[in-house]
């Protein structure tokens, strides 16, 4: 086992914490149907960090919003299953979902300051979360909020609890968001680019905190990011998304050592890695396709060098399927589907 594989105890029943099957979320706009999420399947175990990586517009955030059923019109989850502890969240009533959100599944967003209410003290906002979900109206007091702030490593929580969000730095505000997310000890934490707005030294603090909370609470984490470095350091297992679909899934070390999908290969080769200077960086030609006029067949085909090298013709016609090319290593590419 590598340093990244967390030794989690499987729960008594071997059911995974979260299982998504073939999730599809479309937006029906006047210009056409935007297939923001178009066939994503993933599994999160307790105590596991599942990295969801891809470039802007690839549907990684929309996948998270779909899990929470927070898709606004004109968007709609058109098909798929989201099994949380074995129950399909897509079949829950609105009322049941409210009870799950924040209590069993929490989410933290990229911009901590715009996620907090600017006119309320952070303590008030924390107490509100606790009261709604714990239902103990009177017994929850200021000291519970102080305790929550202390648990996420905010120095001087007794004073900070009285602060308004604008009196805090970005890193501090993100800790408050995490404190709110953790308030009800959720089983699943969805962290959507939690450190993108933060400086590197502050990012290191926040990532460290997420890892620590995962260890303490045996929580499952979906970590959404565009940063391959964060994925490499944090995740146990990684799903790579491209233009709405999951193109590859593998344990982290396996993915970085032997990436199978040409997109993943290009992505890993194109980022500068500190301590490994190359004369030139690899380049993925072209741009991410428009989600409205999606090319038929494999979405990556127009940018794919491997397709030309191997003289594959079906890529532009027929969409490949997600197959298990190696044990626990899944890929959606005709290069591998042909072999089996």
């Amino acid at each position: 086992m590598t340093k990244h594989q967390h030794d989690f105890q499987p729960s008594t029943n071997s059911q995974p914490l979260l299982e998504i099957h073939d999730l599809r979320t479309y937006f029906f706009t006047r210009d056409g149907t935007v297939k923001a999420v178009d066939g994503v399947s993933l599994t999160v175990e307790r105590g596991q960090i599942h990295g969801l990586v891809g470039e802007s517009g690839c549907g990684k955030s929309m996948t998270a919003m779909s899990i929470l059923r927070l898709v606004d019109k004109p968007g709609r989850i058109v098909s798929g299953e989201v099994l949380f502890k074995g129950e399909d969240l897509l079949k829950k009533t609105r009322h049941e979902m409210t009870a799950i959100r924040g209590k069993q599944i929490s989410v933290i967003f990229q911009e901590p300051k715009s996620s907090l209410n600017p006119v309320l003290r952070v303590g008030t906002q924390l107490i509100e979360v606790l009261r709604i979900h714990e239902g103990k109206q009177r017994t929850i007091k200021r000291k519970d909020a102080v305790e929550q702030l202390r648990s996420v490593g905010i120095p001087d929580p007794d004073r900070r609890v009285e602060n308004y969000p604008h009196e805090m730095s970005g890193g501090m505000a993100q800790r408050v968001m995490i404190a709110m997310g953790m308030a009800c000890a959720p089983d699943l934490l969805i962290a959507d680019e939690p450190t993108t707005a933060l400086d590197v030294t502050i990012q290191a603090q926040v990532l460290d905190l997420i890892r620590k909370l995962r260890d303490e609470h045996e929580m499952g984490v979906i970590l959404i990011t565009h940063d391959m470095g964060i994925v490499a350091e944090m995740a146990d297992i990684v799903t790579v998304m491209y233009a709405g679909t999951a193109v590859e899934e593998a344990p982290t070390v396996e993915l970085f050592e032997t990436p199978l999908h040409p997109y993943t290969q290009g992505l890993i080769a194109s980022i500068p890695v500190m301590g490994q200077v190359k004369e030139r960086l690899e380049v993925i030609p072209g741009n991410v396709p428009n989600l409205i006029d999606m090319p038929p067949g494999c979405r990556f085909a127009p940018r794919c060098k491997a397709r030309i090298e191997h003289g594959l013709t079906r890529c532009e016609v027929e969409e490949p399927h997600m197959i298990e090319a190696k044990p626990n290593h899944f890929v959606r590419c005709w290069l591998y589907e042909g072999e089996s």
Binding site: T2, G171, Q205, G229, V253, I268, M274
Partner: peptide
């Protein structure tokens, strides 16, 4: 503090306190 896109690289991480 910089995350390195190579899961095999092991480092001693210095976490700076505060802002």
């Amino acid at each position: 503090a910089i995350p390195i896109a190579d899961p095999k690289v092991k480092r001693e991480r210095i976490i700076l306190p505060g802002d």
